[in-house]
């Protein structure tokens, strides 16, 4: 039997009060709920405080380079389709350094989950603006206020045809766990962006800031409807919707490439007779 305890308890490098703790808990709850043993799970991360998460949960892990979690995650998934692969990193990693991979991964639609710890700031490098920092927000690196407009990952993903787009808030662990479970179960690329406060470096988007604004989407929202989904994806101000913003079925990369039932490449053996006949095509 798999339970939350199965995934262990670890000492972390996170600040007391950091939203990462809640997301870590939600992840354990989701995996336990799905009945996945640690050996069936692969967490892939990049660099940042969020990217340390795979070290604080018993599982297979690849803590790679800044911005590159998604390519590694897709490579691993295509190599072993039986693994549950989750690319877990922060907003700077997934949306900034890894922005091109984020766009390409949505288009490619490999059956993985992309979990973004979104605290709207760079934490590990001590408080510079991230892609989701609001325009005008002052930081040590942007003393006159961030000049660029904030990136809207929800609207971008919906516009690009992402099949599963969800947002959570670390203040509601059960809700985040539920979103993660749905994302893992979804066949295709699933995006889960989770707001979390950065207690050390983001004095604007605090726990209270999120708490006051986030409201759960109810049954009146139809995530299969593009128009409704886009409207919710663009809603960002005094009220911010959380929940499954967009969900519909579409062919996965594995289906399109005919690799749905592919065995892990680790079991691959060269068909030498066939290769020999391919070689003779050069004669």
């Amino acid at each position: 039997m798999v339970s939350v305890e199965t995934y262990g308890e670890f000492e972390t490098a996170w600040c007391p009060g950091c939203g990462n703790f809640s997301i870590n808990k939600a992840m354990k709850q989701a995996l336990a709920g799905l009945g996945l043993a640690p050996s069936q799970v692969l967490l892939v991360s990049g660099i940042g405080q969020a990217a340390k998460a795979p070290h604080y949960l018993k599982c297979n892990a690849f803590n790679g380079l800044h911005g590159r979690a998604l390519p590694v995650a897709q490579g691993a998934k295509l190599s072993n389709p039986g693994l549950t692969v989750i690319a877990e990193s922060g907003d700077g990693c997934h949306y900034g350094e890894g922005g091109n991979h984020f766009l390409a991964a949505i288009r490619r639609n490999v059956n993985i989950t992309c979990l973004v710890h979104d605290n709207q700031i760079y934490g590990l490098t001590k408080g510079q603006a991230s892609p989701t920092t609001l325009q005008g927000q002052k930081t040590k690196a942007q003393p006159m206020g961030a000049t660029s407009e904030a990136f809207n990952p929800m609207a971008t993903a919906v516009a690009m045809g992402c099949g599963f787009v969800a947002r959570g808030f670390s203040g509601d662990i059960d809700h985040v766990a539920d979103l993660l479970q749905q994302a893992v179960q979804y066949e295709g690329f699933a995006l889960v962006d989770v707001f979390q406060p950065c207690v050390s470096f983001n004095k604007v988007n605090t726990f209270k800031w999120y708490k006051d604004r986030c409201y759960k989407l109810d049954e009146s929202h139809d995530p299969a409807d593009f128009g409704q989904a886009m409207a919710k994806a663009l809603e960002f101000g005094d009220k911010i919707p959380i929940g499954v913003i967009r969900r519909y079925d579409k062919p996965t990369f594995e289906q399109t490439a005919g690799r749905e039932d592919a065995k892990p490449l680790a079991y691959y053996t060269v068909d030498r007779d066939r290769l020999a006949s391919e070689m003779l095509s050069f004669a």
């Binding site: 892939v44 190599s79 390409a104």
Partner: peptide
């Protein structure tokens, strides 16, 4: 698989190699 850039190609190859591909 044709991918978005060489950075992705390299990292994807490493992810695959880690998971047992050549």
């Amino acid at each position: 698989e044709q991918v978005e850039d060489e950075i992705s190609a390299m990292n994807m190859a490493l992810g695959a190699s880690f998971a047992g591909a050549k």
